[in-house]
Design a protein around this nucleic acid. Sequence first.
DNA 1: CGATAATATATCGCCATACGATACATCGAT
DNA 2: ATCGATGTATCGTATGGCGATATATTATCG
Lengths: 131, 131
Amino acid sequence: MAKKTDKFESDLLRGSLDLMVLAILDQEDQYGYLIQKQIREATEGKVTMGAGTMYPLLHRLEGDKLIRSRWDDSSGRKRKWYSLTAAGKKRLAQRASQWNQYAECMAQLMQGWFEPVASAKKQIRLNKKTT
Amino acid sequence: MAKKTDKFESDLLRGSLDLMVLAILDQEDQYGYLIQKQIREATEGKVTMGAGTMYPLLHRLEGDKLIRSRWDDSSGRKRKWYSLTAAGKKRLAQRASQWNQYAECMAQLMQGWFEPVASAKKQIRLNKKTT
DNA sequence: CGATAATATATCGCCATACGATACATCGAT
DNA sequence: ATCGATGTATCGTATGGCGATATATTATCG
């Protein structure tokens, strides 16, 4: 019914949004609002995380000690900055590998329905090793 | 907590199990129990769909007119065979394309954390076009 | 022949989580 | 003063995968 051609269904995002956030925080520290923006821009608006998804997720990750937060209002604005913990980095590696395997499984089952993922081939930069 | 290294978390499956089933039914008609088996074997046990997931999903797809069922007990066993409808084929194309795009988005965001998906490169068979 | 496992479908309650709505506070610009 | 953007937070709802459970039939093995 909903004719939203340019946005993914939430069930597709489920179970990988945490991975996205972890990956973004691995690059550099961010605060929630920025992460939202980053995801939106990096995916050309195809993946959007509302605040109602973002903040609970961040709290969950912090509760699991995968990320750590600190308030900073030195720039006028009060912002809660998050950074990856060691456990977070480890989890990121796990989840990235898992996602990768899952994508392979899908490829296996979706033979004939897959177009080659051009970007995935070109933009791989193995500057970090998974596990 | 759960140390299931060789099985994916259910949230990862969420939103793509229907796609799997659709893709399998596109190849040939199947009944539930068989689909379960197919998915399990095609993914080397890494993706397993319990009956409590399978049948409700099948019912949902049928309710949406994406698949059609017919009982057959000519082989001794009573089996409910499912086949794709025209709407189902269309949906499959949509969802496959969507998955593909999503995988690209992930690749975008996960730069440096992706290993090359070897199988995805080799086993692509573009015998059908998406959209 | 009786017991057990595999086949086959179905449903129920639980629970995690993505979402929209809403709230609230601050800052810059008009 | 007002308004929009920034920034964080929480609540209720809906969805759907999961384990447990039920039920029936068939095949197998002792």
